[in-house]
Design a protein around this nucleic acid. Structure first.
Lengths: 272, 272
DNA sequence: TGAATAGTGTCTGTGAGACAATATTAT
DNA sequence: ATAATATTGTCTCACAGACACTATTCA
């Protein structure tokens, strides 16, 4: 059939010509947790943590998964992601970045669902809202060798472990492909999402200022360094760290005292 | 309704509960073009180029767009992208990387279509297959200031221009948001895809080896440097470039002669 | 011969890695 | 006093920017 104009074409267009599918947004919410210490001298230990939600419905009933949900027909994915953050985790106004779109036809046993993952970064201490009931923060520990990525998640009650295989792909010169090797407690392909999110954050922390989205307004350089070390998974040398960071922060009048050691100046994020 | 098992749940699942939508893959195919020179001394000028397809149907009839197409209900997006590369541009076995998923509800006037963009890199000279009829390579020139991004595409017959506004977003500390300011000849939101692809390549060329996907097997360092300069949009100093690149290439026995100047050793990509 | 490109040498400044040294607090 | 953390000084080495210089080809 021949149309004479765009308007005429659109008027006659039948959108059922192609098979349709559903789209979800899954959100990796990362933050930093503080552990209390019993030694008056020592600093509280920090943890890198992710928010998971316990599923109370099939499929994957009783397993943990990332906060997520279906995209409405009239909203874009980012808007949906923000709605989900609010609904599932009672969180709003935070850093949000699109990561990757997962499209394995078998990734959801119900039907064809494609999922776009987002990474959100927050400072837990700034949250004045409560989490919803079935949401919980899990501390992340991980280690990797050349071929695999081992992750342990711990919320104080449950410990979830999974293992991901990293393989270099043929055509591409640099990208890894991730495959789940072991996983009992996490729903869907979310272990892949978690690992690729960690990798992304690890890269971005080095060349952007995203880390400050996880920091309180005032912080000491020791605290900031701890966060870098957690995410990068390695110790940094104090003078080197201070050299790198000094262009990104400004010293304030505030001083943190109370530990059994020299008090620390508090700093604040300085843009540009 | 309560189900006793995952199997039972899946058997009774009705997938029409949510509104469905369509998904497409749009592919940015980048390559390097060589321009002949009439001065026997001078090297042929190179161009950074992208493959576009002229639309012969509504919507956006007669405008240019990226090769793209709908995802089948049983294929993942990357598989679809490879199928599209074959069908629309007669290209296979090339570097392919997912970029971003665009989901503005109004991005397609026909209906709700979400699009995942991919970037493909090839060496045009290695293509022994012909392009399909309505596909054409456009040389890219662009310049940017702090706020906007100006792109000109030229295939020797038509010149397409567009302009994109870059704005820093509120919540995010580093990401830009792109908005189309001027555009007459390119369909959909593809100007945005093109610009974000250029930005991505510009970043990746500095910390990965992707550039070699656009190079022939044997090349001179002068040629390689030209490609870097095209993509980065600035001149590089010879000694500095050679220092950086020397770990990535190996010298071969081949020598390129014929120009009215000193002949050049030919190099080859060396992994790791 | 000279225009054009190929390729190398070297100086300088910046910045990261490494280690040492000093400062300050609460118990 | 001492353990723990905060903060700074400095030496070295690697490397990027800059510029100069040499080498080689073909019309």
């Amino acid at each position: 059939m021949e149309y004479k104009s765009e308007e005429e074409f659109l008027k006659n267009y039948n959108s059922d010509e192609f098979e349709k599918l559903s789209l979800t947004a899954d959100i990796l919410i990362f933050s930093i947790s503080n552990e209390q210490t019993n030694n008056y001298r020592k600093l509280g230990k920090k943890h890198f943590s992710v928010l998971l939600v316990k599923r109370d419905n099939y499929p994957f009933k009783d397993k943990w998964c990332l906060p997520g949900g279906f995209i409405g027909i009239d909203e874009d994915i980012e808007t949906a992601a923000k709605r989900i953050l609010k609904d599932e985790a009672n969180i709003k106004d935070i850093y949000l970045e699109q990561l990757y779109t997962y499209s394995d036809p078998k990734r959801d046993p119900r039907m064809r669902v494609i999922s776009t993952s987002y990474m959100a970064l927050i400072d837990k201490n700034r949250l004045n809202t409560k989490l919803t009931n079935n949401a919980s923060w899990f501390n992340i520990t991980y280690f990797q060798d050349e071929k695999s990525f081992n992750v342990t998640l711990d919320n104080g009650e449950e410990i979830l472990k999974f293992k991901i295989k990293k393989t270099l792909r043929e055509q591409t010169t640099d990208r890894y492909k991730f495959t789940i090797l072991e996983n009992k407690s996490i729903a869907f392909d979310h272990p892949l999402v978690i690992v690729s999110g960690i990798e992304r954050l690890k890269n971005k922390i080095e060349y952007t200022d995203v880390v400050f989205n996880m920091m309180p307004e005032y912080f000491t350089l020791g605290e900031l360094q701890q966060v870098y070390e957690l995410i990068l998974g390695k110790k940094l040398l104090d003078p080197a760290f201070r050299r790198i960071i000094k262009h990104k922060v400004e010293k304030t009048d505030k001083i943190q005292t109370g530990g059994g050691h020299r008090p620390s100046a508090m700093f604040r994020y300085k843009k540009r």
